[in-house]
Design a protein around this nucleic acid. Structure first.
Lengths: 215, 215
DNA sequence: GTCTATACAGGGATAGAC
DNA sequence: GTCTATCCCTGTATAGAC
């Protein structure tokens, strides 16, 4: 018997993964059909089952992969905006805007995250834990590390870096996630920018370094 | 032909509404079956169709009703904690805790909200607008009015009351909503309290009134 | 030996008929 | 209130093709 998640043409496997990400993201877990995923991937349904066993295993597999990819993408954004900071406020705003775009972009990574959140009650606890660890928790830790570094440089006055990272996310990302229902509906670019700016201003009131004495 | 949403024994209608709220909240829209709702209500499936037309109309009907009820409940909590404030910080913390409980309580109102959020892409724009207006938007407006009043009393220093209301919600409610996935998973009481306290502290750093000069 | 194509068994859903 | 028509989905089986 073919092993679920076992071998096969890696090319096909990749096509299935991508198709499943798209279809699960668009339709949600229950509405998505294995027929539609096979069609989207351009392979036969049997091939999907040979590679992934059953629908649930396929979903969980692409969920974990998606989570890791998104974390990597966000890590790149942090490196771009938070490593060599010159204008802290502007960099925090730009990072917020780009992260919201990356996570909540309609067609891409964000959509699957929404499907996972909708199915959370039906996901085994250990898989959910792995998804969290590879995704949101990892990003939070990365951001906390950056805030700690910025604090040591005197650009922030952060006591609890993990708390600060969460509050930055709450103030700059969640308003967009909320308005768009985690990417299901579009949000105008200008609104994302406005939200980011207001969120960063609030964040700096909580955790900003006191202005350096002049003269 | 029986009018969808028309007459019928109001007793039965109420039982169906309650049953639909429970089953949709527990299973989500797609998984919930009209059989299960009829059984939960203790009526025949035919009666359900006579009262509400079809599955989607039933869902949208209970969604709107649930949204309005939850708003009313939160309004009561605001009256309890934010009308006659003596210890502002404590009252803000208590309100945050109780609101999180009310909205995210596993079995009750919160569960249906999660189902609605999961189905947002399949809900007609006008119904979604009505749901928002009766629910989250109304609560935000109520909270902003309270913050304005507190500001006039000198207990807060709020410039933009709507923004302050949103930030309070972001800092005290969203961390719980996020951890519990909008009520799908339990969150320990102590954690809710810890989050509320940390959120209120951050909120007061943004919008708190400067300490009155003593002596 | 993996993939395609198709057909099919079994279950469950909505919605309507009687 | 039961019963049923119709449809769709998952997962398997049965063929043949590269």
């Amino acid at each position: 018997m073919a092993t679920a998640g076992g071998a096969g043409r890696p090319e096909k496997r990749k096509a299935i993964t991508l198709a499943a990400t798209v279809v699960f993201g668009r339709e949600g877990y229950v509405r998505a059909s294995m027929d539609a995923i096979a069609a989207e991937a351009g392979v036969s349904k049997r091939t999907v089952y040979n590679h992934f066993g059953d629908k649930e295993a396929l979903f969980l597999s692409v969920a974990l992969q998606n989570s890791a990819e998104l974390t990597e993408k966000i890590r790149d954004l942090m490196a771009k905006y938070l490593d060599r900071v010159v204008d802290l406020r502007q960099d925090l705003v730009d990072f917020a805007v780009e992260r919201a775009r990356a996570v909540l972009s309609a067609g891409e990574h964000g959509a699957l995250g929404r499907a996972i959140r909708a199915e959370v009650a039906n996901i085994p606890a250990d898989v959910l834990g792995a998804w969290l660890e590879a995704g949101p928790v990892a990003s939070l830790r990365d951001l906390a590390a950056h805030f700690e570094a910025l604090s040591e440089r005197g650009l922030l006055a952060v006591e609890d870096a993990a708390l600060a990272a969460e509050q930055y996310t709450l103030l700059t990302f969640h308003p967009v996630a909320d308005r768009s229902f985690w990417g299901a509906l579009p949000v105008a670019d200008e609104e994302v920018e406005r939200i980011a700016a207001a969120g960063v201003d609030a964040f700096l009131r909580i955790h900003g370094a006191p202005a350096p004495a002049e003269g």
